[in-house]
Deep mutational scan, measured.
Amino acid sequence: MTEYKLVVVGAGGVGKSALTIQLIQNHFVDEYDPTIEDSYRKQVVIDGETCLLDILDTAGQEEYSAMRDQYMRTGEGFLCVFAINNTKSFEDIHHYREQIKRVKDSEDVPMVLVGNKCDLPSRTVDTKQAQDLARSYGIPFIETSAKTRQGVDDAFYTLVREIRKHKEKMSKDGKKKKKKSKTKCVIM
């Protein structure tokens, strides 16, 4: 069974824990209790493949930012979460993405942009803004509501699919490099 290491990042209060708990335990946590770091595991079937999701729910508070490099190193894919009623959390996505790329030393890291709290009427981040940002990053965008469960499975499952595509691409690139290195030079 394939294991996928997913990391949920975003500013404090955007609903990272609520999304994760909704996926794992099928219930909505409405009281806000700032996370330092929590880890969850769940076995699911995605596109006919049974897999184990190892999900790291991270601290959004700035005082825990020193811990970010460590979990970013171990993560295979990242859910970059903002709240649709919090423009600052949307603007912060850029910083999370840049930090992930720096730590992973790669421009090509599996990510999904997630606009959470889409059940709320007080939207300050337009869907088109988020779609445009995701398009500019070359990553999928999904709106979710941890409260109603809308888009929750889709967000995590899409990230797994992005990781699969990335692994497939990397193995193809690896095979191309191996083929090239088999060419021999004969000096007579």
Rank of each mutant, 00 (worst) to 15 (best):
T2D: 13
E3N: 12
E3L: 02
E3W: 02
Y4E: 03
Y4S: 10
K5Q: 05
K5D: 01
K5V: 03
L6P: 03
L6C: 08
V8Y: 01
V8E: 02
V8L: 02
G10M: 14
G10E: 01
A11F: 08
G12W: 01
G13I: 01
V14L: 14
K16Y: 01
S17Q: 01
S17W: 00
S17H: 01
A18G: 08
A18K: 00
L19M: 06
L19D: 07
L19F: 14
L19G: 12
T20D: 09
I21H: 14
Q22A: 12
Q22W: 12
Q22H: 10
Q22N: 09
Q22K: 11
L23A: 13
L23F: 09
L23M: 14
L23T: 15
L23N: 12
I24T: 04
I24H: 00
Q25N: 05
Q25V: 14
N26T: 06
H27K: 13
V29I: 07
V29G: 02
V29H: 07
V29E: 02
V29P: 03
E31S: 11
E31W: 05
Y32H: 03
D33K: 00
P34Q: 14
T35M: 15
T35C: 15
I36C: 09
I36A: 02
E37C: 05
E37P: 01
D38C: 00
D38L: 00
D38M: 00
Y40R: 00
Y40F: 09
R41D: 00
R41F: 00
R41N: 00
K42W: 01
Q43T: 09
Q43A: 09
Q43M: 12
Q43F: 10
V45E: 11
I46W: 07
D47M: 02
D47W: 01
E49S: 10
L53S: 08
L53Q: 06
D54L: 00
D54I: 00
D54H: 02
I55L: 05
I55K: 00
L56I: 02
D57C: 00
D57V: 00
T58Q: 02
T58M: 06
G60E: 15
G60L: 15
G60A: 14
E63F: 01
E63H: 04
Y64P: 07
A66Q: 13
A66N: 13
A66G: 07
A66P: 08
A66K: 05
A66Y: 08
M67L: 10
R68D: 01
R68C: 03
R68P: 01
D69P: 01
D69R: 05
Q70H: 15
M72V: 08
R73C: 09
R73E: 10
T74E: 15
T74Y: 05
T74G: 12
T74N: 10
G75Y: 10
G75H: 04
E76F: 14
E76D: 15
E76I: 15
L79H: 01
L79D: 01
L79S: 00
L79G: 00
C80F: 15
C80T: 03
C80E: 00
C80V: 13
V81C: 13
V81Y: 12
F82K: 00
A83K: 13
I84E: 15
I84Q: 15
K88V: 14
K88G: 12
K88P: 15
F90A: 14
F90Q: 12
F90Y: 11
F90S: 12
E91S: 14
I93R: 01
I93Q: 01
H95F: 14
H95G: 10
Y96A: 11
R97S: 07
Q99H: 09
Q99S: 05
I100P: 01
I100C: 09
R102W: 07
R102V: 08
V103Q: 04
K104Y: 08
K104P: 04
K104E: 02
S106Y: 11
S106N: 10
S106K: 12
E107I: 10
D108I: 05
D108L: 07
D108R: 07
D108V: 07
M111W: 07
M111V: 09
M111D: 02
L113S: 01
V114H: 00
V114R: 01
V114W: 07
V114I: 12
V114P: 01
G115C: 10
G115Y: 12
G115N: 04
G115A: 09
N116M: 15
K117P: 00
C118A: 10
C118F: 08
C118D: 10
D119G: 13
L120C: 12
P121C: 09
S122K: 09
R123Y: 10
R123C: 12
T124W: 08
T124G: 11
V125I: 10
D126N: 10
D126A: 06
K128L: 05
K128G: 06
Q131D: 06
Q131I: 07
Q131K: 07
D132S: 05
D132Y: 05
L133A: 04
L133S: 04
L133V: 06
A134T: 04
A134K: 04
A134S: 09
R135S: 09
R135L: 10
R135T: 09
G138M: 04
I139Y: 10
I139C: 11
P140L: 02
F141Y: 13
I142Y: 02
S145F: 12
S145C: 06
S145D: 12
S145R: 07
T148G: 12
R149L: 04
Q150M: 04
Q150N: 04
G151V: 12
G151F: 11
V152F: 10
D153G: 09
D154P: 05
A155T: 11
Y157K: 13
T158L: 06
L159Q: 01
L159K: 07
R161H: 10
E162H: 08
E162Q: 06
E162D: 08
I163N: 02
R164A: 09
R164T: 14
K165D: 11
K165G: 09
H166D: 13
K169L: 09
K169M: 08
K172I: 10
K172H: 05
G174S: 09
K175E: 15
K176A: 09
K176S: 13
K176F: 06
K177H: 08
K177I: 11
K178T: 12
K178Y: 06
K180E: 05
T183Y: 14
T183M: 07
T183I: 04
V186R: 04
I187P: 14
M188Q: 12
M188T: 08
M188G: 08
